Amino acid sequence: MTNALDLVAPANSLAMEYTRDFDAPVGAVFRAHAEQDLVVQWLGPRHLEMSVDRWDFRTGGGYRYLHRDPEGGEYWFTGVFHTVRADDLVVQTFEFDGAPDVVNLEFAWFEDLGNGRSRLRGRSLCPTAEARDAFLSSGMEDGMTESYERLDELLART
């Protein structure tokens, strides 16, 4: 079963907020975010190949990864994991190399819904309204939707 992504960007706010339910236990959803070998199987649209330069998923750790399109275009992403609490919360920064000096602060809450189901709830705070609007118009929602569909498939296999 595919659950819908609910993404909103409240007017007069620098935030984008989302929720997405999963038909899997919260521990499995968290693990899929934590373990590099699992992350590369679901993060990003299907047409992009992902490779990881660094993945240190712990409080004080960080990441750098690449998405490459079929034509060879490269999209690098970098960030710092400020807080990681298993099965509960991740606070991180997110920076796309194609938008220098635009660093988002992101929160992800992992919620146990019972009966083997869970909810991922997130908030991304952008530095400016222009940055937020650029993310929203970039196809980010479609990319998130496809990523979470891929995560559903991964969770069903594991």
Rank of each mutant, 00 (worst) to 15 (best):
D69G: 14
S124A: 13
V84A: 01
E146K: 01
D53E: 15
G60A: 03
T78R: 15
G143C: 02
A28H: 13
L136I: 02
Q41G: 12
L66K: 09
P127Y: 10
F107W: 13
F81D: 04
L48R: 05
H33Y: 14
D6R: 11
S137Q: 12
A28G: 02
L38Q: 06
P100M: 12
W76Y: 14
G72F: 10
L125E: 12
S13Y: 03
S13Q: 10
H67Q: 11
A129K: 13
M50L: 14
A34L: 01
A9S: 15
V8N: 15
A28R: 13
N3T: 09
E71G: 04
L14G: 08
G44S: 05
A4N: 13
D6A: 12
A156H: 09
D133V: 10
A99Y: 14
A86I: 06
G60D: 03
L48W: 11
R150P: 02
H47L: 09
Y63V: 09
D37Q: 10
R54E: 06
G73R: 03
R157I: 09
P45D: 10
R54Y: 07
D97P: 00
E74H: 04
G62S: 07
E35Q: 13
Q92T: 10
L155R: 09
R121T: 01
M16A: 13
G122I: 01
A34T: 00
V26L: 09
P70D: 01
G44C: 04
R20K: 14
R123L: 13
L38M: 07
A99C: 05
R85W: 00
S13G: 03
L105E: 06
D142L: 11
F57P: 10
W55S: 03
T59G: 12
Y148I: 07
G27P: 07
R121L: 02
E35M: 08
L5C: 10
N12S: 11
G139I: 06
H82W: 00
G72A: 11
D23T: 12
L5A: 07
E130R: 14
L66H: 03
G114W: 08
E49F: 10
V26E: 06
S147M: 08
G27M: 00
E74A: 10
L7E: 06
G98P: 02
L38G: 01
T2D: 12
L48I: 03
F107L: 14
